[in-house]
């Protein structure tokens, strides 16, 4: 059910919608659940942004792995 894909905010259409790009696909997405700016990486589900995607993953995951790898 929960198919969601990360894309990039290209344009603020109005107070409800932004356009989001996925490798050349433009989707009009509702933006009411998160504060977004042009250029943000966002996760889209059913035509709606459900979260911004951050780049801190690598760092946090590495931390978790260091801990888990120690046994």
């Amino acid at each position: 059910m929960c198919v969601a894909l990360p894309g990039t905010v290209k344009e603020i259409i109005d107070e409800r919608y932004v356009s989001v790009d996925f490798s050349g696909n433009t989707v009009k997405a509702a933006s009411g659940l998160v504060d977004v700016h042009i250029g943000d990486r966002v996760l889209i589900h059913a035509g709606c942004i459900i979260q911004t995607v951050s780049e801190k993953e690598a760092m946090e995951i590495e931390e978790a792995f260091r801990e888990l790898g120690e046994n």
Partner: peptide, 9 residues
Amino acid sequence: GSVRDFCSL
């Protein structure tokens, strides 16, 4: 790439 992401969506 566009087809791939379209399908994923």
